[in-house]
Design a protein around this nucleic acid. Structure first.
Lengths: 340, 340
DNA sequence: CTGTTAGCGCCTTCAT
DNA sequence: ATGAAGGCGCTAACAG
């Protein structure tokens, strides 16, 4: 691992001259330039970016902290982030918290030490503790997908209340009245907001919400499975299920299949977050899809704005539109269907 | 952004003392320790890891360079890498090359400058150019999933020849004789090896390979679609398709559906790489699955071994077992089925 | 138990 | 057009 002074020695110049050649700054005679370049090539010299950062106080690196790297919704976000970051010469460090507050805190600490310039964060929960350090240091942060009750960070997400409202409204229009909702942790805004959208739709329809049909747990397949089992045990049984995300939906579907119920004849199911079209032979889930790539891209733009010292003083809250796609997993409830 | 000397000043000690408190090294009187800790808390001091690395020549960071971050096979690998790395206090920088040699070269260069300690690489192609710099510098590298003709790197992967052989053998046993193979780029070892496995099985069966039924393109859904269209246009039409990975298979299935053919009645299809069980309502593809998580985990262990100066001098080549799972997408060829 | 010195690799500033 | 000195933040080695 040769350094700049190795090169300087070999080329018979000062380190400054090498630096100027490497960074194309200042005036260099053609002849010395060539000599230096030859020395660089011969030694396989690669500049040490760390040393450079130590002076510049800018690492050109941002961190993307996700809660689940195996969820295609989040990897698509990552794609958007990567593209936007690279456009401006930034690198991205991806981190995975597994929805754990502890891991999030650890990563935040680590990344702070590593002097990343800014954070893109899908918060594992709405606890202030973990991000207090960020606020204290005034590091630029943009929130993705989820709200935080401290209102001082830029954020990019979809309107979960509205999306949930549309899904449940769709079910109501089909004639359902007993609709269960299976949601994530109460500490996560999307879980709360999606239940709020459900409640709004139910109240508007004059039905109101049945506390026994509202479930909170976590955004995993296993939890979806268990919540669905409990929902199906309710009496009378719900005729439709609203799963607050795709993984919960998969678990619920498994439970429905085990109960020997047909979708949508016996029970309808709708959810947030599609799978990428191409991975599914025959898309059948009625969903609200969110523009994941754009969420990542837009959030990165906001962050890089801040890093460039641009952007307004006040915090920005960007809401991207979500889209309802009606497919085969939702139909009229059994009793209504019978009447047809 | 306070520094170690800010803390030192505030606590009325030298920077060395602060350093000792932060790193828990050497002897410190209880009283000074408390004073320093108070100063740290008051200033919100966070040590600058970069400055530290500048001395240590070790960043405790490894790079994971993938070709497609949206493919669940690779994100599962990423999971394994992350877990193994964290166990030993290493961070991971994920990068995505999109199967592009150019992007790979750029990333390699960037990461070298950033002084990452080692590389986990899924090579975009078997070109020497891009990795020449790695070899020249002697940075530890472990190859994942794919071979490289330069044999000096450790590697972890599954046996693609064997896996392909088993899939094609399975089709032959069902009675197929006209089997098309849709593979990835000839510059990628898995693409080549899977065709080799196909050829071996076909030759063993005394059929030999029909050059018109062997297709190379890239590992994407679009290419799978186009290759399948050409395969289906062959006359007589193949009764089975072996897709060299999941994305190619999805494209092929779309083409098959558009041609109004039924799977497996009219045509069978088998492939490498499953989708995670939980994402699929009703798994129907006959596949060879690879232990992606273990590939990532094992590769990371090899790399960290090297970094610790352990491990043998010779290069290690780890082959993990792949598993054939027969499901509904493969059945006897039409003529045979008719006879039943 | 604590402080001083020196240097990691680079670049800005000021000379020459 | 080129070079010398100094310092970014941190810590190992050696005082004291």
């Amino acid at each position: 691992m040769s350094t700049i002074s190795d090169v300087a020695k070999r080329a018979g110049v000062s380190t400054m001259t090498v630096s100027r050649v490497v960074n194309n700054s200042g005036y260099i005679s053609q002849e010395t330039r060539e000599r230096v370049e030859r020395a660089i090539a011969e030694l396989g010299y690669v500049p040490n970016a760390l040393a450079r950062y130590l002076r510049f106080k800018q690492t050109k690196t941002i961190a993307l902290i996700l809660t689940d790297i195996t969820n295609p919704f989040f990897t698509t976000i990552a794609r958007g982030v990567e593209d936007a970051a690279r456009d401006q010469g930034f690198s991205v460090i991806f981190c995975n918290t597994d929805e754990s507050e502890t891991e999030q805190t650890e990563y935040l600490q680590l990344l702070l030490q590593r002097q990343v310039d800014g954070f893109l964060l899908v918060p594992a929960s709405d606890s202030d503790e973990s991000i207090a350090a960020l606020r204290a240091r005034g590091v630029p942060v943009v929130l993705l997908d989820r709200r935080l009750s401290v209102g001082e960070f830029d954020s990019v997400r979809c309107d979960s209340v509205q999306g949930a409202y549309e899904l449940v409204h769709h079910l109501l229009a089909l004639g359902h009245t007993r609709i269960a909702v299976l949601s994530g942790s109460k500490a996560v805004s999307t879980a709360v907001d999606r239940v709020a959208g459900y409640t709004r739709a139910m109240c508007e329809a004059g039905i109101g919400e049945d506390q026994h049909l509202v479930f909170y747990d976590r955004f995993t397949q296993g939890d979806g499975y268990r919540m669905a089992q409990r929902a199906l045990a309710a009496s009378p049984r719900p005729t439709a299920i609203f799963a607050a995300n795709n993984f919960i939906a998969f678990g619920a579907i498994r439970a429905i299949q085990e109960a020997d119920l047909r979708i949508p004849e016996d029970i309808s199911i709708v959810t947030f977050d599609d799978l990428p079209q191409l991975w599914v032979m025959d898309p059948f889930l009625t969903v609200v899809t969110q523009p994941a790539y754009e969420i990542g891209h837009k959030a990165t733009e906001l962050l890089l704005d801040r890093l460039a010292g641009e952007g307004p003083v006040e915090t920005r809250e960007i809401m991207l539109p979500a889209e309802l796609i009606v497919r085969k997993s939702s139909g009229p409830p059994p009793t209504v269907a019978t009447k047809l």
